[in-house]
Amino acid sequence: MLRNIHKDWLGAGFVAVLGLAILIFVPVYFDLFEVLQMTKYVVLALFVLSLAYIWGFGGILSFGQAGFFGLGGYVFAVSAINMGQTTIPFLIAIALCVLFAGALGYFMFYGRLNDVYLGVVTLVVTLILYKLINHTAGPEYIIGTARLGGFNGIPSIPIMTLPWQPDQEMEPAQMFQYFMAILIAVYVLLHVLIKSKFGRVAISIRENEVRTSLLGYDVRLYKLCIFMIGGAIGGAAGAMWASYQTFVDPNIFSLEWSAKCLIWVIAGGVGTLIGPIIGVIALEYLSFQLGQTDFINNLIVLGTILILVVLLMPKGLFPTFRDIFLKLWRRRGGQGDGERPG
């Protein structure tokens, strides 16, 4: 599996260039509705990257990644409503999610929680947040001028502004480009991180935690940092989601969101960054198309697709097709197996 992580820079560069091309040309060639739809995919792609990184490259299986998504959304909403601008609230949302991940992660990793217990704790914490926010409907639950609204959620969240134009809300095309730029930047940064010493150690923790510790690396600290990075990305995605929708409600913390995030990663391919992005776009597009029909329930179709992917392509969509391509390429080039280039 580690072999898959040795993607050359060419692949990452190709993805980044493709992303830039999409950033430039989508607003030119697609109509408003399609741009809005693609903006949604971009935000969800960032959200899925948070889990794709911590699970695929740190071995941390979080069942509650929606916790950071929701927290980022709510913190952004409250801050933006109070401050009348969006750049600092966006940063506050990320910072608070990092702190929350740090506090939660400290107890989990320094308490030696692993595997299923870690999954259960992350899920339960997210569901506690869900319940907590659901019970804030009364008028006493107000932070500054922002009412939390309980199950009704927070409406009229400010649309993001460009940092250098704080008085002007972004147009849909601008929002798409801004969010796309963030997605590309996060993708490239994660790729750099994975290739760094920190990234190598993180992968070694995923592969063999005991040996990593026996090499003198503080596994707890590394896992905490990985979890906090995941929290930051999830929080950023949540803030972007709240601004995109101009609305946020407690359902953002729901099990459905955490489960969907897991499904996107599994379908796209654990241990890759681009796979889960492909997974979220493919499944959300399919879900959208099926939602326009009334002869079949789209959840049944999605569930069937997930079962088929797990059974037929256990590595996920992207790694499976990549391996097929590489096998064909090697056969054509006559390259051997089991030997790594020096």
Partner: peptide
């Protein structure tokens, strides 16, 4: 002391069942 601290002090162990990163090259 934790395992990683002990290792950093200068104790290394080769375990009974080789404990390696199977997906990586020996180097």
């Amino acid at each position: 002391q934790t395992t990683h601290d002990i290792v950093r002090l200068g104790i290394g162990i080769k375990t009974q069942v080789p404990n390696l990163f199977d997906g990586l090259a020996a180097r």
